[in-house]
């Protein structure tokens, strides 16, 4: 029974991945706009029709959509993501250069928002209905509605320009040849503002989930039983309530892990951070088809993997999910 379920689950993922790959291939081509300007360079309009055709042919754009699709699948199967129209470089290289930076931002922000969100959520639930809870709830809801670019620009103008505490953008001081601790500090000081922006915007989600999960557990019969048994209030909160509330929070966090990559597009632009988000943004403007496909694929895989993670984690946290 179990292996059967597992294999059908695997099949599901493979199917979703295939559909996503197909969509990733189709979407760029369905958008109006033409990558010819990127392929041929800026003065594309001044080329003769023959020269234009030659440029398009070199990129395989003269072939039928089915041909292009099968060629894409073939390349993908052999791990080849292709060449960027804009940068004329292998896309694998371009993604590998940027992935660590996005990991750094998204990872730090996720960690930060998980710790702060869970702690505040638990605190709020514990103090439910009291002024501290209501204030926190209000602040979180307000925070949740802030646009990320606005918050980011505010941080740049205040902390970087006015106070000069942090650099205004970038991931590392260019051409600085720093080493060791200095290098780490330099990278850290560049990351503070973007991580803070990303974190502040994702804390409310975690907080609200945690608070709600705690509140629903607090109403359960076994909590009353625990209290009746004489378990201390602190014991109830940590050993019984928080533990049970963590299951939905873990799911939310796992899913966020995948989405975190997409969430960096705006923040990476505001802080001129050299991550995947900026790559996708640049690829869309100008219609760099191969880069669009490849970055979409990375996001797709990230979301699928985080779903898988949630699927695997959930039964470990919540024994009830193992039963069936």
């Amino acid at each position: 029974m179990r292996t059967e379920r597992r294999s059908s689950r695997v099949l599901q993922y493979v199917l979703v991945l295939l559909i996503a790959i197909t969509l990733n291939f189709m979407l760029p081509r369905m958008m109006p706009g033409n990558p010819l300007a990127l392929l041929a360079g800026a003065d594309v309009g001044l080329l003769s029709p023959e020269q234009r055709a030659e440029v398009a042919a070199r990129a395989g754009l003269d072939r039928s959509i089915v041909d292009q699709y099968t060629a894409y699948l073939g390349d993908l199967a052999s791990g080849d993501l292709g060449f960027s129209y804009r940068q004329k470089r292998p896309i694998v290289d371009m993604i590998l250069e940027r992935l660590p930076w996005t990991f750094l931002l998204a990872g730090s922000a996720l960690l930060f928002s998980a710790v702060v969100g869970v702690a505040l959520g638990a605190f709020s639930a514990w103090r439910r209905g009291r002024p501290a809870d209501l204030t926190l709830l209000g602040v979180m809801i307000a925070l949740d509605s802030l646009p990320s670019f606005w918050l980011g620009m505010l941080f740049v103008s205040f902390f970087a320009v006015q106070l000069g505490f942090f650099p205004s953008g970038g991931a590392i001081t260019a051409a600085s040849s720093l080493e060791g601790v200095d290098l780490v500090l330099n990278i850290a000081s560049h990351a503070v503002l973007p991580v803070l922006t990303l974190s502040l915007l994702s804390v409310p989600g975690v907080y609200l989930t945690m608070r709600y999960a705690m509140l629903s557990v607090l109403g359960e019969d076994f909590i009353r039983t625990a209290r009746a048994k004489g378990v201390s209030e602190r014991g109830v909160l940590f050993r019984h309530v928080a533990r049970n509330a963590l299951a939905p929070v873990a799911t939310v966090l796992a899913l966020r892990l995948g989405l975190a990559f997409g969430g960096t597009v705006v923040v990476e632009t505001v802080f001129s951070y050299p991550g995947l988000g900026r790559l996708i943004f640049e690829a869309v403007s100008g219609r760099d088809y191969p880069v669009m496909q490849a970055t979409f694929l990375v996001f797709t895989v990230a979301v699928l993997l985080s779903n898988l993670l949630a699927d695997v984690l959930y039964p470990l946290i919540d024994p009830r999910a193992r039963a069936t």
């Binding site: 620009m153 740049v156 103008s157 970087a160 320009v161 000069g164 650099p167 205004s168 953008g169 970038g170 260019a174 990476e268 632009t269 505001v270 802080f271 001129s272 050299p274 900026r278 943004f281």
Partner: peptide, 17 residues
């Protein structure tokens, strides 16, 4: 130094980056 947009350059000029 590459910035994502004009606002990035303006901020960097102001900070002296």
């Amino acid at each position: 130094v590459q910035y994502a947009d004009e606002a990035g350059i303006v901020a960097a000029l102001r900070t002296g980056d």
